[in-house]
């Protein structure tokens, strides 16, 4: 894959970490999602400035024993899925400061 993808959390969400999972609520339609631990790592790293391949390399491949190409493909699918649901922004350009910021908790 040659093109870089940038991901940022939508500012129109509410989110909190509960145990190993992330609770995310879309302000658009109040739909509630839970992200599993891997998706949570991607979500937390989605600052709009770090390209997706770097997130996968530094945050996912270093944590889990996974094939990097496969992990990147999975991450792209996940990012697209979250974007369709309106809780993540994707762009081929860096995305401006990703507010609101995220808190670690529980």
């Amino acid at each position: 894959m040659s093109r870089k993808l940038y991901v940022a959390r939508s500012p129109r969400i509410a989110a909190r970490k509960l145990g190993e999972e992330m609770l995310v609520m879309s302000a658009v339609d109040s739909t509630l999602f839970t992200l599993n631990p891997t998706a949570t790592i991607l979500w937390q790293a989605a600052d709009g400035a770090t390209p997706l391949d770097e997130i996968v390399e530094h945050k996912i491949c270093s944590e889990f024993d996974v094939n990097p190409d496969e992990a990147l493909r999975d991450a792209e699918t996940l990012a697209n899925d979250l974007a369709t649901r309106g809780i993540l922004l994707i762009s081929e350009q860096p995305i401006g400061a990703a507010k609101p910021r995220l808190q670690e908790s529980a």
Partner: peptide
């Protein structure tokens, strides 16, 4: 509020 976020309040 910052303490509540740390404590996990959603």
């Amino acid at each position: 509020l910052a303490e509540m976020a740390e404590a996990g309040v959603f």
